[in-house]
Design a binder for these strands. Structure first.
Lengths: 227, 227
DNA sequence: GGGATATTTCATCATGCGTTGAATTTCTGA
DNA sequence: TCAGAAATTCAACGCATGATGAAATATCCC
Protein backbone atom coordinates (compact mmCIF):
# COMPACT_ATOMS: atom_id res chain seq x y z
CA UNK A 1 0.00 0.00 0.00
CA UNK A 2 2.70 2.40 -0.97
CA UNK A 3 0.68 4.43 -3.39
CA UNK A 4 -0.86 7.32 -1.51
CA UNK A 5 -3.23 8.52 -4.18
CA UNK A 6 -6.00 6.45 -5.66
CA UNK A 7 -4.16 3.90 -7.74
CA UNK A 8 -5.82 4.11 -11.12
CA UNK A 9 -5.80 0.78 -12.85
CA UNK A 10 -5.35 2.14 -16.36
CA UNK A 11 -1.57 2.19 -16.57
CA UNK A 12 0.78 -0.69 -17.07
CA UNK A 13 0.88 -3.47 -19.63
CA UNK A 14 -2.40 -4.59 -21.13
CA UNK A 15 -3.58 -8.16 -21.53
CA UNK A 16 -2.43 -8.05 -25.12
CA UNK A 17 0.57 -5.94 -25.86
CA UNK A 18 0.04 -3.32 -28.56
CA UNK A 19 2.43 -4.41 -31.27
CA UNK A 20 4.13 -1.86 -33.50
CA UNK A 21 2.41 -3.54 -36.41
CA UNK A 22 -0.98 -2.79 -34.92
CA UNK A 23 -0.04 0.84 -34.74
CA UNK A 24 1.02 0.77 -38.37
CA UNK A 25 -2.28 -0.85 -39.27
CA UNK A 26 -4.13 1.84 -37.38
CA UNK A 27 -2.14 4.53 -39.15
CA UNK A 28 -3.02 3.07 -42.51
CA UNK A 29 -6.68 3.00 -41.59
CA UNK A 30 -6.64 6.62 -40.53
CA UNK A 31 -4.85 7.67 -43.69
CA UNK A 32 -7.29 5.82 -45.86
CA UNK A 33 -10.40 7.02 -44.09
CA UNK A 34 -9.59 10.63 -43.42
CA UNK A 35 -6.54 11.56 -45.41
CA UNK A 36 -2.99 12.21 -44.46
CA UNK A 37 -3.76 15.59 -43.00
CA UNK A 38 -5.98 14.15 -40.33
CA UNK A 39 -3.45 11.53 -39.39
CA UNK A 40 -2.26 13.11 -36.20
CA UNK A 41 -0.43 11.01 -33.68
CA UNK A 42 -3.46 11.27 -31.43
CA UNK A 43 -5.83 10.12 -34.16
CA UNK A 44 -3.67 7.13 -34.90
CA UNK A 45 -3.44 6.33 -31.22
CA UNK A 46 -7.22 6.50 -30.91
CA UNK A 47 -7.62 4.13 -33.83
CA UNK A 48 -5.11 1.76 -32.25
CA UNK A 49 -6.93 2.10 -28.94
CA UNK A 50 -3.90 3.24 -27.03
CA UNK A 51 -2.35 6.41 -25.79
CA UNK A 52 -0.40 8.72 -28.05
CA UNK A 53 2.68 8.28 -25.93
CA UNK A 54 2.80 4.61 -26.71
CA UNK A 55 3.50 5.49 -30.29
CA UNK A 56 6.62 7.25 -29.15
CA UNK A 57 7.55 4.18 -27.19
CA UNK A 58 7.63 2.16 -30.38
CA UNK A 59 8.72 4.83 -32.86
CA UNK A 60 11.16 7.66 -32.52
CA UNK A 61 8.95 10.17 -34.20
CA UNK A 62 6.00 10.49 -36.47
CA UNK A 63 8.29 10.49 -39.46
CA UNK A 64 9.85 7.25 -38.35
CA UNK A 65 6.39 5.77 -38.26
CA UNK A 66 5.76 6.88 -41.83
CA UNK A 67 8.96 5.31 -43.02
CA UNK A 68 8.24 2.13 -41.10
CA UNK A 69 4.96 1.96 -42.95
CA UNK A 70 6.78 2.15 -46.26
CA UNK A 71 9.43 -0.30 -45.18
CA UNK A 72 6.78 -2.80 -44.30
CA UNK A 73 5.61 -2.77 -47.90
CA UNK A 74 8.54 -2.09 -50.14
CA UNK A 75 10.86 -5.03 -49.47
CA UNK A 76 8.28 -7.56 -50.59
CA UNK A 77 7.50 -5.51 -53.66
CA UNK A 78 11.17 -5.09 -54.38
CA UNK A 79 11.76 -8.79 -54.22
CA UNK A 80 8.89 -9.71 -56.47
CA UNK A 81 9.98 -7.08 -58.93
CA UNK A 82 13.46 -8.52 -58.91
CA UNK A 83 12.02 -11.88 -59.78
CA UNK A 84 10.04 -10.38 -62.63
CA UNK A 85 13.08 -8.53 -63.82
CA UNK A 86 14.97 -11.80 -63.99
CA UNK A 87 12.46 -13.63 -66.14
CA UNK A 88 14.22 -12.61 -69.29
CA UNK A 89 12.59 -15.28 -71.38
CA UNK A 90 9.14 -13.94 -70.79
CA UNK A 91 7.75 -11.33 -73.21
CA UNK A 92 8.10 -7.79 -71.92
CA UNK A 93 4.40 -7.05 -72.36
CA UNK A 94 3.54 -9.76 -69.97
CA UNK A 95 6.10 -8.67 -67.48
CA UNK A 96 4.93 -5.08 -67.54
CA UNK A 97 1.36 -6.16 -66.96
CA UNK A 98 2.54 -8.38 -64.15
CA UNK A 99 4.24 -5.32 -62.71
CA UNK A 100 0.93 -3.52 -62.55
CA UNK A 101 -0.72 -6.58 -61.07
CA UNK A 102 2.00 -6.64 -58.46
CA UNK A 103 1.56 -3.05 -57.52
CA UNK A 104 -2.17 -3.51 -57.48
CA UNK A 105 -1.92 -6.49 -55.20
CA UNK A 106 0.28 -4.62 -52.77
CA UNK A 107 -1.21 -1.18 -52.90
CA UNK A 108 -4.66 -1.47 -54.42
CA UNK A 109 -6.37 -1.68 -51.07
CA UNK A 110 -4.03 0.68 -49.26
CA UNK A 111 -5.15 4.17 -50.00
CA UNK A 112 -3.23 5.39 -46.98
CA UNK A 113 0.03 4.10 -48.29
CA UNK A 114 -0.64 5.56 -51.67
CA UNK A 115 -1.21 8.90 -50.01
CA UNK A 116 2.24 8.74 -48.47
CA UNK A 117 3.78 7.72 -51.74
CA UNK A 118 2.05 10.48 -53.61
CA UNK A 119 3.84 12.86 -51.37
CA UNK A 120 0.99 14.42 -49.53
CA UNK A 121 3.29 15.12 -46.68
CA UNK A 122 3.02 16.32 -43.17
CA UNK A 123 4.26 19.55 -41.79
CA UNK A 124 7.26 20.64 -43.69
CA UNK A 125 8.64 17.16 -43.96
CA UNK A 126 11.64 17.94 -46.07
CA UNK A 127 13.84 15.13 -44.89
CA UNK A 128 10.99 12.71 -45.16
CA UNK A 129 10.23 13.57 -48.74
CA UNK A 130 13.84 12.91 -49.64
CA UNK A 131 13.81 9.61 -47.82
CA UNK A 132 10.57 8.48 -49.40
CA UNK A 133 11.63 9.63 -52.83
CA UNK A 134 14.81 7.63 -52.62
CA UNK A 135 13.01 4.46 -51.69
CA UNK A 136 10.51 4.86 -54.49
CA UNK A 137 13.13 5.58 -57.08
CA UNK A 138 14.89 2.37 -56.21
CA UNK A 139 11.62 0.62 -56.92
CA UNK A 140 10.96 2.41 -60.16
CA UNK A 141 14.48 1.62 -61.26
CA UNK A 142 13.56 -2.04 -61.40
CA UNK A 143 10.68 -1.32 -63.70
CA UNK A 144 13.01 0.78 -65.79
CA UNK A 145 15.21 -2.27 -66.07
CA UNK A 146 12.45 -4.28 -67.60
CA UNK A 147 11.92 -1.49 -70.07
CA UNK A 148 15.63 -1.52 -70.87
CA UNK A 149 15.49 -5.20 -71.61
CA UNK A 150 12.51 -4.53 -73.84
CA UNK A 151 14.48 -1.95 -75.76
CA UNK A 152 17.41 -4.29 -76.18
CA UNK A 153 15.31 -7.05 -77.61
CA UNK A 154 13.55 -4.58 -79.86
CA UNK A 155 10.09 -4.79 -78.38
CA UNK A 156 10.12 -1.25 -77.05
CA UNK A 157 10.89 1.97 -78.85
CA UNK A 158 14.50 2.95 -78.25
CA UNK A 159 13.59 6.65 -77.99
CA UNK A 160 11.91 5.98 -74.68
CA UNK A 161 14.05 6.98 -71.71
CA UNK A 162 13.48 3.96 -69.46
CA UNK A 163 13.28 5.83 -66.18
CA UNK A 164 10.78 8.24 -67.58
CA UNK A 165 8.85 5.33 -69.03
CA UNK A 166 8.72 3.63 -65.64
CA UNK A 167 7.51 6.84 -64.08
CA UNK A 168 4.71 7.20 -66.63
CA UNK A 169 3.56 3.65 -66.08
CA UNK A 170 3.56 3.67 -62.30
CA UNK A 171 2.48 7.20 -61.57
CA UNK A 172 -0.53 7.12 -63.81
CA UNK A 173 -1.43 3.74 -62.43
CA UNK A 174 -1.47 5.02 -58.87
CA UNK A 175 -3.30 8.18 -59.76
CA UNK A 176 -5.93 6.17 -61.57
CA UNK A 177 -6.48 4.03 -58.50
CA UNK A 178 -7.24 7.16 -56.54
CA UNK A 179 -9.28 8.93 -59.16
CA UNK A 180 -11.76 6.32 -60.24
CA UNK A 181 -13.59 5.96 -56.92
CA UNK A 182 -13.96 9.72 -56.66
CA UNK A 183 -15.10 10.37 -60.19
CA UNK A 184 -18.76 10.19 -59.30
CA UNK A 185 -18.35 12.84 -56.67
CA UNK A 186 -16.57 15.23 -58.98
CA UNK A 187 -18.92 14.70 -61.89
CA UNK A 188 -21.92 15.07 -59.62
CA UNK A 189 -23.55 12.07 -61.18
CA UNK A 190 -23.48 8.42 -60.20
CA UNK A 191 -20.66 6.59 -61.93
CA UNK A 192 -20.04 2.97 -61.20
CA UNK A 193 -16.34 2.87 -60.41
CA UNK A 194 -14.63 0.13 -62.35
CA UNK A 195 -11.00 0.17 -61.39
CA UNK A 196 -9.89 -2.96 -63.26
CA UNK A 197 -11.36 -1.60 -66.45
CA UNK A 198 -9.65 1.73 -66.01
CA UNK A 199 -6.32 0.07 -65.30
CA UNK A 200 -6.66 -2.16 -68.35
CA UNK A 201 -7.49 0.87 -70.40
CA UNK A 202 -4.38 2.56 -69.11
CA UNK A 203 -2.21 -0.42 -69.88
CA UNK A 204 -3.53 -0.72 -73.40
CA UNK A 205 -2.74 2.91 -73.99
CA UNK A 206 0.67 2.54 -72.43
CA UNK A 207 1.72 -0.53 -74.32
CA UNK A 208 0.65 0.86 -77.64
CA UNK A 209 2.58 3.94 -76.67
CA UNK A 210 5.85 2.26 -75.90
CA UNK A 211 5.83 -0.77 -78.16
CA UNK A 212 7.86 -0.82 -81.33
CA UNK A 213 5.00 -2.63 -82.96
CA UNK A 214 1.87 -1.20 -81.36
CA UNK A 215 -0.58 -3.03 -83.56
CA UNK A 216 0.24 -6.51 -82.36
CA UNK A 217 -2.75 -7.39 -80.20
CA UNK A 218 -2.15 -7.62 -76.48
CA UNK A 219 -1.96 -11.12 -75.04
CA UNK A 220 -4.72 -12.13 -72.68
CA UNK A 221 -4.16 -10.15 -69.49
CA UNK A 222 -4.64 -12.07 -66.26
CA UNK A 223 -7.14 -10.15 -64.13
CA UNK A 224 -6.16 -7.93 -61.24
CA UNK A 225 -6.74 -9.29 -57.78
CA UNK A 226 -10.06 -8.51 -56.19
CA UNK A 227 -10.42 -7.07 -52.71
CA UNK B 1 -4.18 65.11 -29.01
CA UNK B 2 -6.81 62.63 -28.05
CA UNK B 3 -4.62 59.56 -28.14
CA UNK B 4 -3.22 59.09 -24.68
CA UNK B 5 -0.69 56.42 -25.47
CA UNK B 6 2.21 56.80 -27.86
CA UNK B 7 0.53 56.80 -31.27
CA UNK B 8 2.43 54.21 -33.24
CA UNK B 9 2.70 55.18 -36.85
CA UNK B 10 2.49 51.68 -38.26
CA UNK B 11 -1.24 51.38 -38.65
CA UNK B 12 -3.46 52.84 -41.28
CA UNK B 13 -3.31 52.76 -45.05
CA UNK B 14 0.10 52.50 -46.67
CA UNK B 15 1.41 54.59 -49.52
CA UNK B 16 0.49 51.81 -51.89
CA UNK B 17 -2.54 49.77 -51.04
CA UNK B 18 -1.94 46.02 -50.83
CA UNK B 19 -4.11 44.65 -53.59
CA UNK B 20 -5.75 41.25 -53.28
CA UNK B 21 -3.79 40.21 -56.33
CA UNK B 22 -0.53 40.92 -54.57
CA UNK B 23 -1.62 38.61 -51.79
CA UNK B 24 -2.43 35.91 -54.31
CA UNK B 25 0.96 36.40 -55.89
CA UNK B 26 2.60 36.07 -52.50
CA UNK B 27 0.63 32.92 -51.79
CA UNK B 28 1.79 31.39 -55.04
CA UNK B 29 5.36 32.24 -54.24
CA UNK B 30 5.14 30.63 -50.83
CA UNK B 31 3.52 27.51 -52.26
CA UNK B 32 6.17 27.18 -54.90
CA UNK B 33 9.10 27.79 -52.61
CA UNK B 34 8.13 25.90 -49.51
CA UNK B 35 5.18 23.70 -50.34
CA UNK B 36 1.55 23.88 -49.50
CA UNK B 37 2.11 22.72 -45.96
CA UNK B 38 4.20 25.73 -45.11
CA UNK B 39 1.71 28.11 -46.64
CA UNK B 40 0.25 29.42 -43.42
CA UNK B 41 -1.65 32.66 -43.47
CA UNK B 42 1.19 34.23 -41.54
CA UNK B 43 3.77 33.02 -44.05
CA UNK B 44 1.77 34.40 -46.94
CA UNK B 45 1.35 37.69 -45.12
CA UNK B 46 5.08 37.90 -44.51
CA UNK B 47 5.75 37.30 -48.19
CA UNK B 48 3.24 39.98 -49.10
CA UNK B 49 4.84 42.30 -46.53
CA UNK B 50 1.66 42.89 -44.64
CA UNK B 51 -0.08 41.66 -41.54
CA UNK B 52 -2.00 38.41 -41.47
CA UNK B 53 -5.18 40.25 -40.60
CA UNK B 54 -5.09 42.10 -43.86
CA UNK B 55 -5.59 38.81 -45.64
CA UNK B 56 -8.87 38.46 -43.79
CA UNK B 57 -9.80 41.94 -44.86
CA UNK B 58 -9.60 40.85 -48.47
CA UNK B 59 -10.62 37.20 -48.19
CA UNK B 60 -13.19 35.51 -46.02
CA UNK B 61 -10.96 32.64 -45.10
CA UNK B 62 -7.90 30.79 -46.15
CA UNK B 63 -10.01 28.48 -48.28
CA UNK B 64 -11.50 31.44 -50.10
CA UNK B 65 -7.98 32.56 -50.88
CA UNK B 66 -7.19 29.16 -52.36
CA UNK B 67 -10.24 29.24 -54.56
CA UNK B 68 -9.52 32.80 -55.62
CA UNK B 69 -6.12 31.59 -56.73
CA UNK B 70 -7.73 28.95 -58.90
CA UNK B 71 -10.34 31.31 -60.23
CA UNK B 72 -7.67 33.68 -61.33
CA UNK B 73 -6.27 30.98 -63.60
CA UNK B 74 -9.08 28.76 -64.77
CA UNK B 75 -11.34 31.14 -66.69
CA UNK B 76 -8.61 32.03 -69.16
CA UNK B 77 -7.69 28.39 -69.58
CA UNK B 78 -11.33 27.48 -70.00
CA UNK B 79 -11.82 30.03 -72.70
CA UNK B 80 -8.77 29.02 -74.67
CA UNK B 81 -9.79 25.40 -74.40
CA UNK B 82 -13.22 26.25 -75.70
CA UNK B 83 -11.61 27.88 -78.70
CA UNK B 84 -9.49 24.79 -79.32
CA UNK B 85 -12.50 22.58 -78.93
CA UNK B 86 -14.28 24.57 -81.62
CA UNK B 87 -11.55 24.24 -84.25
CA UNK B 88 -13.15 21.13 -85.67
CA UNK B 89 -11.29 21.37 -88.94
CA UNK B 90 -7.93 21.04 -87.30
CA UNK B 91 -6.47 17.54 -86.82
CA UNK B 92 -7.03 16.14 -83.37
CA UNK B 93 -3.32 15.43 -82.85
CA UNK B 94 -2.53 19.07 -83.26
CA UNK B 95 -5.31 20.12 -80.96
CA UNK B 96 -4.23 17.74 -78.22
CA UNK B 97 -0.69 19.00 -78.42
CA UNK B 98 -1.98 22.54 -78.31
CA UNK B 99 -3.87 21.56 -75.19
CA UNK B 100 -0.65 20.59 -73.50
CA UNK B 101 1.01 23.76 -74.70
CA UNK B 102 -1.89 25.68 -73.25
CA UNK B 103 -1.62 24.03 -69.87
CA UNK B 104 2.10 24.48 -69.94
CA UNK B 105 1.80 28.15 -70.68
CA UNK B 106 -0.61 28.69 -67.84
CA UNK B 107 0.78 26.34 -65.24
CA UNK B 108 4.32 25.49 -66.23
CA UNK B 109 5.81 28.19 -64.05
CA UNK B 110 3.28 27.93 -61.26
CA UNK B 111 4.32 25.09 -59.04
CA UNK B 112 2.16 26.48 -56.27
CA UNK B 113 -0.95 26.28 -58.32
CA UNK B 114 -0.12 22.79 -59.42
CA UNK B 115 0.21 21.84 -55.79
CA UNK B 116 -3.32 23.03 -55.13
CA UNK B 117 -4.60 21.21 -58.16
CA UNK B 118 -2.86 18.03 -57.21
CA UNK B 119 -4.79 18.11 -54.02
CA UNK B 120 -2.06 18.48 -51.51
CA UNK B 121 -4.45 20.08 -49.17
CA UNK B 122 -4.39 21.82 -45.88
CA UNK B 123 -6.01 20.83 -42.66
CA UNK B 124 -9.07 18.77 -43.26
CA UNK B 125 -10.13 20.72 -46.27
CA UNK B 126 -12.98 18.50 -47.32
CA UNK B 127 -15.22 21.16 -48.75
CA UNK B 128 -12.33 22.69 -50.55
CA UNK B 129 -11.34 19.47 -52.22
CA UNK B 130 -14.85 19.10 -53.54
CA UNK B 131 -14.90 22.64 -54.82
CA UNK B 132 -11.52 22.30 -56.49
CA UNK B 133 -12.39 18.93 -57.97
CA UNK B 134 -15.52 20.31 -59.55
CA UNK B 135 -13.66 23.15 -61.19
CA UNK B 136 -11.01 20.85 -62.56
CA UNK B 137 -13.47 18.36 -63.91
CA UNK B 138 -15.18 21.07 -65.88
CA UNK B 139 -11.80 21.78 -67.44
CA UNK B 140 -10.99 18.18 -68.15
CA UNK B 141 -14.40 17.76 -69.73
CA UNK B 142 -13.36 20.11 -72.49
CA UNK B 143 -10.36 17.98 -73.27
CA UNK B 144 -12.62 14.94 -73.24
CA UNK B 145 -14.69 16.69 -75.84
CA UNK B 146 -11.76 16.95 -78.18
CA UNK B 147 -11.16 13.27 -77.68
CA UNK B 148 -14.81 12.56 -78.48
CA UNK B 149 -14.49 14.45 -81.72
CA UNK B 150 -11.40 12.43 -82.49
CA UNK B 151 -13.32 9.22 -81.94
CA UNK B 152 -16.14 10.37 -84.18
CA UNK B 153 -13.84 11.17 -87.04
CA UNK B 154 -12.04 7.90 -86.56
CA UNK B 155 -8.66 9.25 -85.51
CA UNK B 156 -8.88 7.92 -81.97
CA UNK B 157 -9.65 4.42 -80.79
CA UNK B 158 -13.32 4.11 -79.89
CA UNK B 159 -12.55 1.90 -76.90
CA UNK B 160 -11.06 4.87 -75.11
CA UNK B 161 -13.42 6.38 -72.55
CA UNK B 162 -12.93 10.09 -73.29
CA UNK B 163 -13.01 11.31 -69.72
CA UNK B 164 -10.48 8.74 -68.67
CA UNK B 165 -8.40 9.64 -71.69
CA UNK B 166 -8.43 13.29 -70.70
CA UNK B 167 -7.42 12.39 -67.19
CA UNK B 168 -4.48 10.34 -68.40
CA UNK B 169 -3.26 13.12 -70.63
CA UNK B 170 -3.50 15.95 -68.12
CA UNK B 171 -2.58 14.20 -64.93
CA UNK B 172 0.57 12.65 -66.26
CA UNK B 173 1.48 15.96 -67.83
CA UNK B 174 1.23 17.78 -64.52
CA UNK B 175 3.03 15.07 -62.60
CA UNK B 176 5.82 15.13 -65.14
CA UNK B 177 6.25 18.86 -64.67
CA UNK B 178 6.76 18.29 -60.98
CA UNK B 179 8.92 15.21 -61.25
CA UNK B 180 11.55 16.21 -63.75
CA UNK B 181 13.16 18.99 -61.71
CA UNK B 182 13.39 16.72 -58.68
CA UNK B 183 14.75 13.68 -60.46
CA UNK B 184 18.36 14.59 -59.79
CA UNK B 185 17.68 14.81 -56.09
CA UNK B 186 16.03 11.44 -55.93
CA UNK B 187 18.58 9.68 -58.07
CA UNK B 188 21.41 11.25 -56.12
CA UNK B 189 23.22 12.10 -59.30
CA UNK B 190 23.19 15.24 -61.38
CA UNK B 191 20.55 15.06 -64.09
CA UNK B 192 19.98 17.98 -66.34
CA UNK B 193 16.22 18.51 -66.15
CA UNK B 194 14.74 18.81 -69.60
CA UNK B 195 11.04 19.38 -69.18
CA UNK B 196 10.17 20.01 -72.83
CA UNK B 197 11.81 16.77 -73.82
CA UNK B 198 9.97 14.83 -71.13
CA UNK B 199 6.66 16.37 -72.13
CA UNK B 200 7.27 15.56 -75.80
CA UNK B 201 8.14 12.04 -74.82
CA UNK B 202 4.89 11.80 -72.92
CA UNK B 203 2.88 13.12 -75.79
CA UNK B 204 4.44 10.71 -78.26
CA UNK B 205 3.58 7.85 -75.97
CA UNK B 206 0.08 9.16 -75.44
CA UNK B 207 -0.74 9.76 -79.05
CA UNK B 208 0.51 6.36 -80.14
CA UNK B 209 -1.57 4.97 -77.31
CA UNK B 210 -4.85 6.59 -78.29
CA UNK B 211 -4.57 6.88 -82.06
CA UNK B 212 -6.37 4.47 -84.31
CA UNK B 213 -3.35 4.54 -86.54
CA UNK B 214 -0.39 4.90 -84.20
CA UNK B 215 2.28 4.53 -86.85
CA UNK B 216 1.46 7.72 -88.71
CA UNK B 217 4.32 10.00 -87.79
CA UNK B 218 3.50 12.93 -85.55
CA UNK B 219 3.31 16.31 -87.23
CA UNK B 220 5.93 18.84 -86.26
CA UNK B 221 5.11 19.90 -82.72
CA UNK B 222 5.43 23.63 -81.98
CA UNK B 223 7.71 24.03 -78.98
CA UNK B 224 6.48 24.70 -75.47
CA UNK B 225 6.88 28.21 -74.16
CA UNK B 226 10.05 29.03 -72.30
CA UNK B 227 10.12 30.69 -68.94
C1' DG C 1 9.25 -12.98 -2.83
C1' DG C 2 11.43 -9.21 -4.88
C1' DG C 3 13.98 -6.52 -7.93
C1' DA C 4 14.72 -5.56 -12.76
C1' DT C 5 12.49 -4.71 -16.95
C1' DA C 6 8.87 -3.95 -20.28
C1' DT C 7 4.62 -1.75 -21.25
C1' DT C 8 1.25 1.61 -20.67
C1' DT C 9 -0.97 6.08 -19.37
C1' DC C 10 -1.09 10.84 -17.52
C1' DA C 11 -0.07 15.47 -17.33
C1' DT C 12 2.15 18.81 -19.48
C1' DC C 13 5.03 21.86 -22.63
C1' DA C 14 5.94 24.88 -26.33
C1' DT C 15 4.56 26.00 -30.82
C1' DG C 16 2.04 27.20 -34.63
C1' DC C 17 -2.28 27.57 -36.62
C1' DG C 18 -6.80 30.12 -38.40
C1' DT C 19 -9.42 33.65 -36.96
C1' DT C 20 -11.46 37.88 -34.63
C1' DG C 21 -12.24 42.52 -32.58
C1' DA C 22 -10.59 46.64 -31.66
C1' DA C 23 -7.49 50.39 -32.40
C1' DT C 24 -5.23 53.39 -35.44
C1' DT C 25 -4.19 56.00 -39.42
C1' DT C 26 -5.09 57.91 -44.03
C1' DC C 27 -8.11 59.18 -47.67
C1' DT C 28 -12.40 61.00 -49.66
C1' DG C 29 -16.24 63.84 -50.46
C1' DA C 30 -19.82 66.90 -49.09
C1' DT D 1 -13.69 71.22 -42.03
C1' DC D 2 -14.99 67.31 -40.60
C1' DA D 3 -17.51 62.88 -40.73
C1' DG D 4 -17.24 58.66 -42.36
C1' DA D 5 -15.24 55.01 -45.05
C1' DA D 6 -11.22 52.35 -46.24
C1' DA D 7 -6.90 50.17 -45.16
C1' DT D 8 -3.84 48.61 -42.01
C1' DT D 9 -1.83 46.65 -37.66
C1' DC D 10 -1.94 44.82 -32.88
C1' DA D 11 -3.06 41.72 -29.44
C1' DA D 12 -5.22 38.03 -28.29
C1' DC D 13 -8.30 33.63 -28.30
C1' DG D 14 -8.92 28.80 -28.56
C1' DC D 15 -7.40 24.80 -30.38
C1' DA D 16 -4.60 21.01 -32.26
C1' DT D 17 -0.27 19.41 -32.81
C1' DG D 18 4.37 16.72 -31.93
C1' DA D 19 6.85 15.58 -28.20
C1' DT D 20 8.63 14.50 -23.25
C1' DG D 21 9.28 12.96 -18.44
C1' DA D 22 7.49 10.80 -14.84
C1' DA D 23 4.39 7.67 -12.73
C1' DA D 24 1.98 3.35 -12.59
C1' DT D 25 1.28 -1.40 -13.49
C1' DA D 26 2.33 -6.10 -15.15
C1' DT D 27 5.56 -9.72 -16.11
C1' DC D 28 9.65 -12.37 -15.78
C1' DC D 29 13.66 -14.30 -13.68
C1' DC D 30 16.56 -15.42 -9.90
Amino acid sequence: MISPKSPSRTRGPKAHRVEPDQILDAAERVFAARGLQAASVRAIAAEAACDASLIYYHFDSKETLFLALLDRLLPALHQELARLSAEVERPVVERLWETLRLYHRHMGHRAGLRAIIKGELVRGAEGLQREIGGRLVRNAEQVANILRQGIEEGAIRPELEPRLGAFFLLKTFIETLDLVPRLGVFLNEPVKPDIPKAIQSWFQLYWRGVATDPLTPLPALPPLSEF
